[in-house]
């Protein structure tokens, strides 16, 4: 038991030694990260949740991802963030998981109906998009 714990801690230490630490990096690596970040700030400002509640939700998502095998090297951070945001939104009954799923499919249809390079707009495929 002690032996495997030690090995794990050593592996973690080695993993950190190998991670890039120098130089500047973009604040957001992809536009969706920025949108997810900003939506969270907006909902917090609206009073939907306190920042402590947010930190709790985010750390729960991070723990769940780690338990599922994510080495959690910081690059998956905004995926955890997005899951926490979805959980917060459904938890406060702003919308439901099925509402989000239906809307996700609507965006997928819209994307597929949009010639490459044109802005993607909801309903582009001609199917009505019901409120979520």
């Amino acid at each position: 038991m002690t032996r495997s714990e030690t090995t794990t801690a050593e592996q973690v230490a080695a993993l950190f030694s190998q991670m890039p630490k120098k130089g500047t990096e973009p604040v957001f690596r992809e536009p969706w990260e920025a949108r997810a970040f900003a939506m969270t700030l907006a909902l917090h400002e609206k009073g939907l949740f306190t920042w402590s509640q947010w930190a709790e939700m985010l750390s729960a998502e991070i723990r769940a991802a780690q338990a599922a095998g994510d080495p959690d090297c910081g690059d998956s951070y905004y995926r955890h963030w997005l899951r926490a945001l979805e959980a917060m939104v459904t938890g406060h009954k702003v919308t439901s998981a099925s509402g989000m799923e239906a809307r996700r499919l609507a965006w997928q249809r819209a994307a597929e109906a949009t010639p490459h390079g044109e802005p993607i707009e909801l309903g582009r495929d001609g199917t009505p998009v019901p409120p979520a």
Binding site: W32, V94, P115, E118, A132
Partner: peptide
């Protein structure tokens, strides 16, 4: 021939469009 959005991008767009519609953001 169409456009492609990743699974993650679709989820973010779904969420944003819902929150805008409902007046949250």
């Amino acid at each position: 021939e169409g456009s492609h959005l990743s699974e993650t991008e679709l989820r973010v767009r779904a969420l944003e469009s819902i929150l805008i519609e409902k007046g949250y953001v």
